[in-house]
């Protein structure tokens, strides 16, 4: 790990994302994973009993909670650029928009965008990845799709909200080149948790919760919480090295 590989991309200039500097934001960021996990474990029994309907029913509260989290705690995409633009001379009227208006432009649109992208782009992508990792092809299609949707909502909504849809940025995101922060931690944690969730499936414990895709979703939720915590604290600013 010592010597950087010259062939590898030079380090991204990006800096870790900080939370918004409000007390509410700092408080809610810790409440949010607790809320999410409580929601999940509250509905765990019924997920085990009937995965399809429960996973689709919990998708909406999950989306709402995630949107609330990003809106309250995270800086929306391009927020720094907006500040620069506002300072341009001759545009004084727009320089000081009403609080409500800036809320709509700055927060609602990225939030909406992230929700749309998670549903329309990330969910099918994750569905495909789950299939590639060995999810059944001919059966359990809805279970796999809903599993993908939950993982997408957990991992992608904050990322899109913060980083937008810039292609270069996303190359860095996929290449694990960004410095670790809370949002990146969420994504990596969710993915890793879902990956680990496959471990108990083959065991011969004959438990109802071992059925597809409950362990994967559970792993994703736990991974989200752990990744978010570590990404925001211990590992913040660290970079992932391959070599």
């Amino acid at each position: 790990m010592a010597a950087a590989n010259p062939a590898e991309k030079s380090k991204s200039q990006a800096t870790p994302i900080d939370l918004l500097n409000y007390d509410t934001a700092k408080l809610y960021t810790h409440v949010h994973p607790i809320l999410l996990l409580s929601l999940y474990f509250y509905s765990f029994r019924s997920i085990v009993a009937d995965p399809i309907s429960t996973l689709s029913r919990t998708l909406l509260p999950l989306g709402v909670l995630q949107i609330a989290y990003v809106a309250i705690c995270l800086p929306p995409t391009g927020s720094k650029d907006v500040v620069v633009e506002k300072r341009k001379p001759g545009e004084k009227k727009k320089a000081a928009p009403g609080k409500l208006e800036s809320g709509i432009n700055g927060k609602i649109i990225p939030a909406f965008l992230s929700l749309i992208l998670s549903t329309l782009a990330a969910t099918p992508l994750l569905f495909g990845i789950l299939i590639l990792f060995g999810a059944p092809i001919t059966t359990h299609i809805f279970e796999t799709g809903l599993c993908g949707a939950h993982i997408a909502f957990l991992s992608t909504i904050p990322l899109v909200y913060v980083h937008g849809v810039d292609g270069e940025k996303w190359k860095e995101i996929v290449g694990l080149l960004l410095p670790i922060d809370e949002v990146y931690g969420c994504m990596i944690g969710t993915m890793f948790g879902a990956w680990m969730g496959a471990v108990p499936i083959p065991l011969d414990w004959d438990r109802e919760w071992q059925k597809w895709p409950i362990t994967i979703v559970t792993g994703a939720y736990i991974g989200f919480a752990v990744g978010k915590l570590l990404g925001g604290t211990l590992l913040k600013g660290k970079r992932i090295k391959f070599e």
Partner: peptide, 15 residues
């Protein structure tokens, strides 16, 4: 598949 994904990520990191 995990190795494949890691290699894909690594490919994204190439200059």
């Amino acid at each position: 598949t995990t190795f494949g994904v890691l290699l894909t990520i690594s490919s994204f990191r190439q200059r």
